[in-house]
Design a protein around this nucleic acid. Structure first.
Lengths: 166, 166
DNA sequence: TATTAATAATTAATATGATAATGATTGAGA
DNA sequence: TCTCAATCATTATCATATTAATTATTAATA
């Protein structure tokens, strides 16, 4: 049955996992008038005072062209601000406004709580195995973070490190 | 560091895995003038003679409203056709055209090959652990397929288990 | 230093995702 | 049978994804 083979393929299983997990987090952000992606951006900004749009793209895993619009809307909502870099005038820093920063205290507890419940719904061992295994898949050939010098979490195009151009 | 905590959260790890895995499959479909989602739809249709849009939505994990447009474009490209059900005139069957069916022979070998290489890039044990663990996360409380009577991988609210109307 | 190759952010064009709402049908139950 | 809830496909609306192209700026190099 090639059918089941497709449904149990890694991409489909990954999609099913996301479909099962994300709604609860999406709902929390929605309750604050935010989309899932806007929430992801804010979460990163809450941890970084100064960050360029490019770095924000790397940390959120949102491609730059999409990020431009997301930041636009967050800016219009008064939650973030843009600031051009002086040293490199190509770069643009993004940062939270006072209002945007204040949201952290309202949103993060709910997020943390939902995440804790999610984690509890699975065996601790399984949880770790999945996270480690997925990192291994996402980063073939590259050891765990910290094991080797050069190691960026989400490398852009530049194909896998070791895989000889599968 | 709450920072790394976010980057190693399940949702972000899932996204990173998809970002690492999908480009190679997407490229294959793109070379045939298809998007990733159009390819997903075709893959399912290649395995199902008659299938309603609703069932197609369940099997592809693509929400019905998105699917409508995707099928529209596949139809305009002459790769699939719609057919209204006689017994239940609400339902619409989707099926491949001769042209759409013929594509399978051209595309699937490349897909299968890429998938095999992907699988080889990871320890067999890790691979299985990840798939099983993710299914457990996507289907909390539900045993492995076959373990218990009632159990389908991607059921919406109360979708049919055996596809009774095919 | 004049040129040229990279980078960062953005725009443009098209396709998809998420939610709510609609119209057509069907099914369940009083 | 009549009414009402539920289902299926679709539309509408807004936000995001993907890829290519553009603009501004910086770095690299002859």
């Amino acid at each position: 049955m090639a059918i089941d083979q497709f449904n149990r393929s890694l991409p489909m299983v990954l999609h099913r996992a996301l479909d099962a997990v994300m709604p609860r987090f999406r709902k929390i952000f929605n309750d604050f008038g935010l989309t899932e992606q806007q929430g992801r951006v804010l979460r990163v900004l809450w941890e970084h005072e100064q960050i360029t749009l490019r770095e924000l793209s790397d940390l959120t895993l949102i491609a730059a062209p999409s990020l431009v619009g997301i930041v636009d809307r967050l800016q219009r909502a008064g939650l973030v601000a843009r600031r051009k870099s002086d040293r490199d005038r190509r770069k643009v820093f993004v940062q939270t406004t006072r209002t945007g920063a204040a949201l952290e205290a309202d949103i993060m507890p709910a997020i943390a709580s939902a995440y804790a419940r999610l984690k509890q719904s699975v065996d601790a061992g399984t949880w770790e195995q999945v996270l480690d295994g997925l990192e291994q898949i996402a980063n073939p050939g590259g050891g765990r973070p910290g094991d080797s010098p050069d190691d960026s979490p989400a490398r852009r195009d530049s194909a896998p490190v070791v895989l000889p151009d599968l």
